[in-house]
């Protein structure tokens, strides 16, 4: 059985609480999980203001800034893609079939700022 673990947090305070995670810690956990063969993929995301939402209705694509999924919509799946830039990501997103009835939120993946290991 495969599971998707979704990370929810308050963006504003995520990195400033006493118990906030460090990027090094996140990388180490992901590495340890990968060693056990149980990590299939995962990534931190850029803040929500970098999002763009793609919808296709009657064959016409509409692009809006922000993560404005309707509140009655739920997360029903995900694609992790590698695109040259946002325009290519949008072109891929508009062809994801549920874009015709729901919305596809496109969020850039953030690089973890990992401290280089001294050798």
């Amino acid at each position: 059985m495969k599971y998707l673990c979704l990370v929810y947090a308050e963006e504003e305070s995520l990195h400033s609480l006493p118990d906030s995670p460090e990027d090094d810690e996140c990388q180490a956990y992901a590495d340890s999980l990968a060693e056990t063969g149980k990590m299939l993929g995962g990534a931190p995301l850029e803040p929500v203001h970098t999002a763009v939402t793609v919808r296709v209705r009657d064959g016409k694509t509409s692009i809006t800034d922000g993560p404005f999924a309707e509140t009655k919509e739920q997360l029903t799946g995900f694609y992790l893609i590698d695109a040259r830039d946002l325009n290519e990501a949008i072109r891929i997103a508009e062809n994801i079939p549920p874009a015709r009835v729901g919305s596809i939120e496109v969020r850039p993946v953030r690089e973890l700022q990992v401290t280089p290991k001294s050798t």
Partner: peptide, 28 residues
């Protein structure tokens, strides 16, 4: 400032849209 940050972070390309996407981008 935020718009520039989004251009950088979401990698909004510095490009004239291709033919297929031109109409929608031109609208914008």
């Amino acid at each position: 400032v935020r718009a520039k940050a989004k251009i950088r972070d979401a990698r909004i390309p510095y490009r004239v849209p291709e033919k297929g996407e031109l109409a929608e981008r031109l609208d914008s």
